[in-house]
Structures are given as structure tokens and as C-alpha cells.
Amino acid sequence: MDILTIRWKELYPYVTQFVLLESNSTFTGLPKPLFISHYRDQFKFVEPRLTYGTTGEDSREGKPIC
């Protein structure tokens, strides 16, 4: 999260829209927590320019779960 914060602060003057899509599972299909939602307060400075979404897929069946 620290690296993402540093990067967004560096890019903020030059980027008008940040898009972040976070998955609720790993590429092997194991469930994982949604980290950005836990650290949302840390990213208040970028909130006006942030489009955030979540997605998930059960890779064993290839069906979206969201």
C-alpha cells in the first residue's frame, strides 16, 4: 500500500483519472481479501479521481461470481 500511495502522489498532478480493479481471488482461484477497501482512508487524497471496482471469478468453472 505504501508503494501505491507514493506512486499515486507522484502521478496526481499529471493524471486526471485513476482506475483500479481489484479481484477477490488470486489467479489460481483462491479467495483473497479486498485490500483497497481496508485502506480506503489512506487514499482520501485521490478519491475525486479514483474509479474503483471489484471483480471475481471462480477459475475452476470459469464463471464470474460478481
Rank of each mutant, 00 (worst) to 15 (best):
G56R: 04
L21H: 07
K32D: 00
R60N: 15
I36G: 06
L20Y: 02
F27S: 12
K32I: 07
S59V: 14
G29I: 06
W8H: 06
E61H: 15
Y39C: 13
R40F: 02
S23V: 01
G53E: 10
R60I: 15
F35H: 14
F27K: 07
Y39F: 12
T16S: 14
F35Q: 14
R40N: 04
Y52E: 03
I65D: 12
S25G: 09
T54Q: 10
I3F: 11
F18I: 01
K63L: 10
S25F: 03
W8N: 08
K44N: 14
K9Q: 12
S25E: 06
P33M: 02
L50Y: 01
F35E: 14
R49T: 06
Q42C: 03
T26H: 07
G56A: 09
R49F: 10
E47G: 06
D58A: 08
E10T: 07
R60Q: 15
T5P: 09
V19N: 08
R40Y: 02
P64K: 13
R60M: 15
L34S: 04
I65P: 04
G56Q: 06
T28I: 13
P13I: 00
R40C: 07
F35M: 14
R40T: 08
V46G: 01
E47W: 05
L21Y: 04
T16Y: 11
F43S: 01
T55V: 12
Q42V: 01
P64I: 04
L30S: 07
L20S: 00
Q17S: 11
H38M: 10
T5D: 03
D2E: 12
G62W: 03
R60G: 15
E57W: 13
F45V: 08
P31R: 00
G56Y: 07
G56T: 04
F27I: 08
T55D: 09
T16F: 08
D41Y: 02
H38W: 07
G62N: 05
L21G: 03
Q42D: 04
V46E: 00
Y12S: 12
P31Q: 00
K32R: 08
R60D: 15
L20Q: 01
F43W: 01
D58S: 08
